[in-house]
Each structure stands twice: as structure tokens, then as C-alpha cells.
């Protein structure tokens, strides 16, 4: 069971060849996952990845931050310790706009980072190793999940036939013993 292949990765050195292979993999219903060293525009459309919705919660948090800033100025300046400055109203909302806006935007920036880290599955991982170090340099990777053990050879041949310069088969044992070595093929197999 431990040696049963769970996914096959094809490494492409050609941008155009990689996109063509991704398109073919989707057409052949291989449910591919793709990894690229830099953003490849058009790839998300090929793979059917929906537009990121990270903007909506961030906008919500900016508004919450703004309200917190406004509430803080209202509470401190007119409730907790009303301060008479030149006879002006205790709660002069116009003067509190700068602090409220800055608080809102700061909340938004922090939330943007935290949410992006969550959606991109980021966390300090000192032992992260990609199966191929060139994946973050000049190599485009297409990972195809293996449903039946016998399929791994077929999928390897399919990837080679579509221009993959190298093909690598990931057994379940390797992934289970060191998941950080091949994190994506595991996910591809299960998902």
C-alpha cells in the first residue's frame, strides 16, 4: 500500500508547451494541478480556477476597523474623559476621520496578509522541500492524481507525450513519511 502511486508530476521547461498540456489534461479529465515559478496568466481559466474572493472579507474588515476607530475616538473623547478643546463639541466626528480611516486601512492591510496566507496555505515551514527545486525557478509542473495503481504508467506516458521533460511518480509512502516533501501530490490524490 505504501508504494502505491498517488500522483504523477510532469515537469515542463516550455511555457507554451506547459499551457498546451494543461489544456489537454483538462480536456482529458485528468483533474490536473499546476505549479509555476511565476504567475502564468490564462492558466486559471484553463484549470477552471475561480476568481479569488479575498477582496470581500478585506473590505468588510476595513469597514469594521473604521467603525472601531470611530468608536474609540467617540468613547475616549466624549464618554470616558470628555475633553473640552476650545469649546468645540466633544464628539467632533470630522476631526476623527483621519484616525478612523487609518485604523480601518491598517486593519485591512493586516487582514489582507492573514487571509492571503490562509488561502495560499502559508505558514512558517522550515523543512519545506519541493519535489523538484526548479519548480520555483524555471520549471512548470503539472500534477495528475492517480486513481488506480496501474494508471501511473499511462499518466506518465501521457505527460511525456505532451512535452514533459521529466516525469516523477509519487508513492503514498514518501508522502506519508515526509509530507512536506511532496505536499501537493498528496492533496491531488485526495482531492
Amino acid at each position: 500500500m505504501g508504494d502505491q502511486p498517488i500522483s504523477v508530476a510532469g515537469y515542463f521547461h516550455s511555457h507554451a508547451g506547459f499551457l498546451a498540456a494543461a489544456r489537454a489534461a483538462v480536456a482529458d479529465k485528468h483533474q490536473p494541478q499546476a505549479f509555476t515559478p511565476y504567475p502564468v496568466h490564462g492558466l486559471d481559466a484553463i484549470l477552471g480556477i475561480k476568481r479569488s474572493l479575498i477582496g470581500r472579507p478585506v473590505l468588510g474588515i476595513i469597514l469594521i476597523g473604521f467603525c472601531i476607530g470611530l468608536h474609540m475616538t467617540w468613547y475616549t473623547m466624549s464618554q470616558s474623559w470628555p475633553l473640552n478643546v476650545g469649546g468645540k463639541p466633544y464628539f467632533a466626528w470630522q476631526t476623527f476621520m483621519v484616525v478612523s480611516l487609518e485604523t480601518g486601512l491598517l486593519f485591512g492591510a493586516l487582514a489582507n496578509f492573514v487571509l492571503a496566507a490562509h488561502f495560499c496555505r502559508l505558514f512558517p515551514a522550515p523543512f519545506t522541500r519541493l519535489p523538484n527545486p526548479r519548480m520555483s525557478d524555471d520549471t512548470f509542473t503539472l500534477v495528475l492524481p492517480v486513481r488506480l495503481a496501474a494508471d501511473s504508467e499511462l499518466l506518465s506516458a501521457w505527460l511525456s507525450g505532451h512535452g514533459a521533460a521529466e516525469v516523477e511518480v509519487f508513492p503514498a509512502a514518501a508522502a506519508a513519511s515526509a509530507p512536506e516533501h511532496a505536499p501537493e501530490p498528496v492533496e491531488a490524490a485526495h482531492g
Binding site: 504567475p39 484549470l47 479569488s52 479575498i54 486601512l105 502559508l122 512558517p124 519548480m135
Partner: peptide, 27 residues
């Protein structure tokens, strides 16, 4: 590795990343 936060460069990751990057610019 710690600084890279386990970045892998998945197609979906880049989607979120680019969106978040643009939002940083807007903020």
C-alpha cells in the same frame, strides 16, 4: 524556508496572491 512560509506556487495560490498584492496597492 521560514521566510518563504512554505510557498509552493500553485495556480490557485498565485490567483489569491496576485489579488492580495493588488489589494495591498489599493490600501
Amino acid at each position: 524556508s521560514v521566510l518563504a512560509l512554505g510557498w509552493r506556487g500553485g495556480a490557485g495560490d498565485w490567483q489569491h496572491y496576485e489579488r492580495a498584492y493588488a489589494q495591498f496597492a489599493w490600501i
